[in-house]
Design a protein around this nucleic acid. Structure first.
Length: 326
DNA sequence: TAATACTACCGCCACA
DNA sequence: ATTGTGGCGGTAGTAT
């Protein structure tokens, strides 16, 4: 079982603390997650004394101490209370130890400052809430700050942008551990869009479209999703939406935070992940089915988006057709 | 992996 | 004057 250590402290922001609790701390065995999918064990850790205040005005108590972080496969650091404040050395040292041990390190929002203080972001790409990205870059010149992205991974160190990006990153971790299908179940249960790519813009005019309803491009998006196997071009999409290509591209950016082609590619990848997990079809067939002209193109995009080749992905996540027992 | 031909993206600008 | 549109063209990215 995968253990997630959540670091908490006095005057913590409730939201970023709650997101990992929601994703990693809930037993979902009754809610459609297939039997046999291991769940997470969440341990909430702090060395600070007594009941901890939250910025929401209520208090919490951490049942575990920092020393328990040694058990964590993943360490999550939520938004730090004050970007000007240097965290206590004890905290920084347990983070360094965890990192040395090979634990996956994750920061949410301004939690990146804590990782940076611990030196874990030196020479790495990282992000944080866009309001603080300048401050982070200034204070830690060795960190390559990307202010325009939802979350970043660099060698087992994950950082995410403001508030809602915490959800995206936590679900991304689930995807890495158990595959897209399981991550999508978590997402559905949380009523959250299944997959926002890490590289997506942080700052989007209209809130990112969740269900397609409510979105002016709903019909076109639905239509595209239903025709991923066709050789679609931006011109096709624009025509379907009754707009010039130029206007379509603009509208699309406002509504989704990405460009039409990137979105299309992403949808195709998600479809392909599902096929890889649930069928034994040859990879070239899947490529065709998902709208990639050739297997080579498919492999290229898949590797880039997911980080592993389609074949490796299947090896890891191919679901054994349910055998009742357990 | 390289070369080529093609497509998308986005700033700019004139126009409604 | 302000705001949205859409064609153009250079560059970046994609397909085979």
């Amino acid at each position: 079982m995968h253990t997630v250590g959540l670091v908490v402290f006095d005057r913590i922001a409730p939201f970023e603390m709650a997101v990992p609790c929601e994703v990693f701390g809930i037993d979902r065995t009754e809610t459609g997650v297939p039997k046999g999918v291991p769940h997470y064990r969440l341990i909430v850790c702090s060395d600070e004394e007594g009941p901890l205040r939250t910025q929401g005005g209520f208090t919490i108590e951490a049942p575990y101490g920092l020393s328990d972080l040694r058990e964590a496969d993943t360490v999550v650091v939520p938004a730090w209370r004050d970007v000007e404040e240097t965290p206590l050395e004890a905290l920084l040292e347990s983070l360094r130890q965890a990192n040395r041990r090979g634990a996956r390190m994750v920061s949410l929002c301004t939690g990146a400052f804590i990782l940076a203080h611990a030196g874990l972001l030196d020479g790495r790409r990282a992000t944080t809430h866009w309001m603080y990205s300048d401050a982070l870059a200034r204070r830690f010149p060795a960190v390559e700050v990307d202010p325009a992205v939802l979350y970043v991974e660099d060698e087992q160190v994950f950082t995410s942008a403001g508030t809602a990006a915490a959800i995206d990153l936590c679900l991304h971790l689930v995807r890495l551990d158990y595959g897209a299908r399981v991550a999508n179940m978590f997402a559905r249960r949380m009523v959250v869009p299944p997959h926002r790519d890490g590289g997506q813009a942080q700052y989007v005019q209209a809130p990112v479209v969740q269900r397609f309803d409510e979105c002016p491009l709903a019909e076109t998006l639905e239509w595209v999703s239903a025709n991923l196997h066709e050789p679609l071009t931006v011109a096709h999409m624009a025509r379907h939406a009754h707009m010039s290509e130029r206007t379509f591209a603009r509208r699309f950016g406002e509504a989704t935070g990405t460009t039409p082609l990137q979105w299309l590619l992403n949808q195709r990848i998600i479809l392909a992940q599902d096929r890889l997990e649930t069928s034994d079809a040859p990879i070239d067939w899947i490529a065709q089915d998902c709208g990639f002209g050739t297997g080579a193109t498919f492999r290229l995009h898949f590797k880039r988006a997911v980080g592993v080749s389609p074949a490796d992905y299947r090896k890891t996540f191919r679901q054994v057709p349910e055998r009742r027992s357990a």
